[in-house]
């Protein structure tokens, strides 16, 4: 069963749908040394840090056909070979939470030429995903599918939705069916969000 939740474009209702996209995942880096800071293992990459080594990018296997979700780093290095598929609408881009919206924008003059952008959150506690979603929607005017992938869990879904995401690939070991309920945890949130204004502009509270 699919673990992909999508908000219906017409009525906003969440439904579980088949995933048409295949993620392109680079091979693991050779011997990845465990990084530590102040005695603790570093769990989050800093914004702007390298995602994949040139070697990993070069060794990435890209399926020969079908719709593919390609990491930004892979796209940057290998766009020549993906050009026609991009034009056919078969390529989407994966941006990691430590990558920047500017870097993505630098690649695509019109972000809406992309049928889908997925933001990969390695750990659910990384709240950069919300700002990235917000930026893509409000700053860069991106209107196509925006998908949260990675460590995507139901207790953050309400925030993902308000940050502009309209599809959510729930982590494989969790039930998307259960998670759907959390998209409606709150009926009248206080503050504005992507596509929403603060409650005092939404309704008369006097």
């Amino acid at each position: 069963m699919s673990n992909l939740i999508q908000l219906n474009a017409a009525n906003g209702v969440a439904e579980i749908v088949q995933d048409a996209w295949t993620r392109v995942i680079p091979p693991a880096a050779g011997e990845e040394s465990v990084r530590k800071q102040a005695g603790k293992v570093v769990l989050f990459k800093l914004t702007g840090e390298q995602t994949y080594t040139p070697e990993q990018v070069a060794n990435t296997t890209i399926p020969a056909s079908g719709k593919i979700l390609v990491p930004l780093t892979v796209w940057q290095a290998r766009k020549a070979e993906l050009q026609t598929r991009m034009q056919a609408g078969e390529v989407g881009i994966v941006l990691a939470t430590h990558e920047t919206a500017e870097a993505l924008k630098a690649e695509f003059n019109d972000l809406n030429s992309l049928p889908i952008i997925a933001i990969y959150v390695e750990r659910f506690a990384d709240g950069r995903i919300f700002t990235l979603g917000n930026w893509l929607r409000t700053r860069y005017g991106y209107t196509n599918e925006l998908r949260a992938i990675g460590d995507v869990l139901r207790d953050q879904l309400f925030f993902h939705k308000r940050a502009g995401f309209n599809s959510f690939l729930i982590r494989a070991d969790r039930s998307a069916q259960d998670a759907i309920a959390s998209l409606n945890d709150f009926s009248q949130p206080y503050q504005g969000a992507v596509n929403d204004v603060p409650v005092w502009r939404r309704m008369n509270r006097a």
């Binding site: 659910f124 506690a125 990384d126 709240g127 919300f130 700002t131 917000n134 953050q156 309400f158 925030f159 939705k161 308000r162 940050a163 709150f186 949130p189 206080y190 503050q191 969000a193 603060p198 409650v199």
Partner: peptide, 14 residues
């Protein structure tokens, strides 16, 4: 207080 309560973008800060 209201603005910050369940702020969707700042739910998981550093």
């Amino acid at each position: 207080r209201q603005w910050s309560t369940f702020h969707p973008e700042f739910a998981l800060l550093p």
